[in-house]
Design a protein around this nucleic acid. Structure first.
Lengths: 223, 223, 223, 223
DNA sequence: AATGAATGAGTGTTCATTCAT
DNA sequence: TATGAATGAACACTCATTCAT
């Protein structure tokens, strides 16, 4: 095994980028180690110096995707103070990150069960962490009186689902909505109905400013 | 291959039941034909007399699941007149069918992409048919003035997602909700906010009668 | 097993005709029992009531072809007296029978070795019997002083080879010769050089009469 | 798959030698890949790193045999000037190469049709190339006035057939002739009759020198 | 006598993993 | 550290053969 920590980091990244791409395109079982090696520009043998086995490559691929969600949302919220605005921006950010990682998102959905049971648990942990970002935004809205009390737990799952759906059902949605429209409509269904009068005012103000997300659209960098 | 139509029906059912079970448990690629044969109590060769190849077994497994949705919802709505009640009952029926086919539902999510492209299209067709059942219920509510105008298309997808989520996130939900509670809360988030005064009255009346779905619960027969 | 002798004869013929056709087209190993059954219009099970196994079907297929040679040549020589003419006519008859059974002839060449060793011997016996027909014609020519002494044994093999070649190398010959021309040229190479003056006169006379086989051409009935 | 050209050459040779042996002994369809692997002393997987599929192994086996003919005849003619002598020596060389590759020759006859159509064409090309070697010898005899005009095309086929027959009918010939005698008699039947007076003198001279091929006999190395 | 559904051993082929270099 | 040739277990699929009806 390799000891130089920096090299490990670099090689793993190199291999994982190739793996995520291929796993996303063709699925876990139809992607071979040698295809990953070729895509990454290394030999098959090398992969086994940085990963335990193929299953391990998948685990770290999934973690890479989930970590991207977790890391890229907070920067997009920086500087935004109003809870309603933060919630909406979080949804927008999540959806646009999903849009940039569409195939990888589908991968996360499809392939978690391909992992060995113990490793699957790790991935679920990661998933929950992203959910908590949205949960906090939702809580802040309620705490500040912008939203009435709702089943937070379940609504957060609807939010997450809504964001993932953009990737999962892209074949159906792409004909109907732009990403901006999609988020806007989602807010209309999953945020607006629960807002108090105060919250609605804030949402309207924000909408006036941001032109309904259509202009701020910026594709997330592909993993 | 085999000509006797009745026998074909029987054997296909026998093999598909085994396939759905195993595919659901362990996924498409990790299930072998000989495991399916053993589970179904037949020889490996026999499977190829009733299916073209392994991919074909998956296709028909998925169709079997999707057809179950499509066939079992309408009977549950029979005799129910009020549009709001019909919508709620459809959600409840869908969720409880999903509950009975929990693994199979996860299978449908994970394995569609394992199909060859042309067969995948067939499965998507089937999916859309079930969606239309819910869509009609939703439209009737709006048309009868029980619900305000909403983005039907997107809300239906939220409904579908909500029902599937019971299977997909069962590991997380089971600790928090009974199925009845889950549906109840879902109605609170995805139906109630859009109801008009008239619609809310109807929902309240129904809730009083059905004790929030907890008593009418009846497990769907496993496929 | 079936006892009625007449039925056995009929069914065997029916199945063998199908087998020869398919074996000739596609070879022994790529032809399946169920294809033979379909072609013959019977069930797969029935074949095993009239043949021991697939190998047995091949044995009798080959015998059928070889017997056709053996049976169809003599009638074509009936009434012909002159030894040189008989020899030429035998070559002509053999070639035209081969022409009618072109695929089957190739089968006999290719598939003898597919037989189990003991059965192969039977087929070789059959082959020798046909050779003897030609051998006798050759001997008569020599005995009557129409041909000088030659290595009979080897020349007969050349004759046989020459006739089979029409089937084996048909892809090359068809562009160059009609069947009649082919036989004519063969006689020029393999008969004429060994004729005595007396024999040459007879050959010339025959050629004048028969217009070099071009007019008497009559396709052999396909097995 | 494998990149090192020298290794490819070596491994292919190693596998093909095993394949030719087994295909010759038992035929294409009854030889399994794993038998070839065992005979070659490699694993089954390795074969697929050097050949596309089993059919491809057969193709290259046949090419190997046919190329042996094509390569080994010319060196045996080196230094021989007289056209009649060259022709006889070519027949002798061809027959003795066939003798060394007896099983492989039978293989070439039996198994060409087992190839896929497009590959079969390649093999036929190769066959024609060898024929051309003999054709040239024959032409030179005629051009130099050692042989009268004959149907070159057909006579060449008789020559080829004659040489192959030593392998194909070895079971019958071995009891009657040594290889040398066989060639001698063949020359008597297929060369001598067409020689002019001049040509006959040359043949007689050669025969006196070479003692009818019996002493120069040297077995070709088995592939 | 005839059927054809059922069997299961056997085959070609793939691919994760190892290891000598 | 990196390579890629080599391995061999595992799988999808076929088909000769059997046997209950």
């Amino acid at each position: 095994m390799v000891t130089d920590a920096k090299l490990v980091e670099e090689r793993r990244g190199q291999i994982l980028r190739a793996a995520v791409k291929l796993f996303s395109d063709k699925g876990y079982y139809t992607t071979t180690i040698s295809q990953i090696a070729r895509e990454a520009g290394v030999s098959t043998g090398l992969i086994y110096q940085y990963f335990g086995d193929k299953d391990d490559v998948l685990l770290l691929s999934l973690k890479l995707v989930l970590e991207t969600y977790e890391k890229e949302i907070p920067p997009r919220l920086e500087g935004i103070k109003h809870p309603v605005e933060r919630l909406c921006m979080a949804l927008w950010a999540y959806c646009s990150i999903v849009d940039g990682l569409r195939d990888a998102t589908v991968l996360a959905y499809r392939s978690t069960k391909s992992l060995r049971a113990d490793r699957r648990a790790l991935v679920k942990q990661e998933e929950l962490r992203t959910n908590r970002l949205l949960q906090q935004c939702l809580r802040d809205c309620i705490a500040a009186g912008h939203m009435r009390a709702v089943n937070e737990y379940l609504l957060v799952y609807q939010y997450v689902h809504f964001c993932h759906a953009w990737a999962l059902k892209h074949w159906a949605f792409r004909a109907k909505f732009s990403l901006g429209r999609y988020v806007d409509e989602g807010i209309g269904l999953l945020v607006e109905p629960f807002l108090t009068a105060k919250g609605r005012t804030a949402l309207a103000a924000m909408r006036r400013r941001t032109a309904h997300f259509t202009r701020t659209a910026k594709p997330a960098s592909r993993a």
